[in-house]
């Protein structure tokens, strides 16, 4: 379990996170939702230690990150997988080399073992004919899938995805969502996903944390989010007419 307790983060006088507390459980896909600029990326990067929180603690299965020794932190980091908002693939490396990179860096596997593992995860994300290509030569959706493959190649215990399906067509977006959920379930990992995509919320929102103005304005599941009358949430969720209708239909049905 990941426990976040009273997390604060500011940039100058821009107080982005104003005391966020929540928990993320194993085998579940946890969604952080909120408007663009609400601090989702800052929240995720603070969890990962890329940004140092100004206040508050984050613990991974009981271990409080800020209290760990330098080598324990590095150890923990090999158990984290992260898919960045812009994929962040190494553009001097081919797809295959990108995915192999963490293995080369941290495992003592032989070349053929590594190649097998890379093959396996690329198959897992449905990407097989692009191994020798460079990130600039593949589409955005393929880049996202390579980023997911790179994030899971070390069998992480914790997986973080920053808008894994933004900028993709609805079909590919759902494929990627489902892929992440399958992986989460299959390997029983803790997955935290940033999103402002309502499709994802409905598909994989086993737990949803709604951020607004730097605080946690609501949390619950994708079942509950339809019923809540928290105004901030309904404002955000039903900003589109389509969803307003869906909601009405849902309420009528029940």
């Amino acid at each position: 379990m990941i426990e976040v307790n009273n997390l604060h983060k500011s940039f100058g006088d821009n107080h982005v996170l104003k005391g966020i507390s929540t928990t993320f459980e194993k085998g579940k896909t946890n969604l952080i939702i909120g408007q663009s600029g609400s601090g989702k990326t800052v929240f995720l990067k603070s969890l990962l230690g890329i940004f140092e929180p100004d206040e508050g603690t984050i613990s991974f299965d009981g271990k409080i990150y800020s209290e760990l020794e330098e080598n324990e932190k590095r150890e923990l980091r090999t158990e984290l997988g992260m898919v960045f908002q812009g994929s962040a693939l190494f553009d001097s490396m081919t797809v295959e080399e990108n995915v192999m990179f963490p293995l080369k860096m941290f495992s003592n596997q032989s070349k053929s073992e590594m190649a097998d593992r890379v093959d396996f995860v690329l198959k897992r994300v449905n990407l097989l004919d692009a191994e020798k290509r460079y990130p600039s030569e593949i589409s955005g959706g393929m880049q996202k899938r390579v980023a997911i493959a790179r994030a899971i190649v070390m069998n992480p215990k914790y997986l973080f995805c920053d808008e894994p399906n933004s900028g993709l067509d609805p079909k590919t977006a759902i494929l990627i969502d489902n892929l992440i959920q399958e992986i989460t379930d299959e390997y029983q990992i803790i997955t935290v996903i940033n999103s402002h995509d309502m499709n994802s919320v409905m598909e994989i929102g086993e737990k949803i944390v709604f951020l607004k103005d730097g605080i946690k304005a609501w949390e619950g599941t994708n079942k509950e989010i339809f019923k809540t009358d928290n105004e901030a949430v309904t404002d955000f969720v039903y900003s589109s007419n389509l969803f307003k209708k869906v909601r009405q239909a849902y309420i009528d049905e029940n």
Binding site: I50, K73, R77, T78, F84, A88, F90, D91, M105
Partner: peptide, 17 residues
């Protein structure tokens, strides 16, 4: 600088490199 802007450096740091 390009690696910084495109979060490739963050990616290295997250991996523990």
């Amino acid at each position: 600088g390009t690696m910084r802007v495109t979060e490739q450096i963050d990616a290295l740091d997250v991996m523990g490199v």
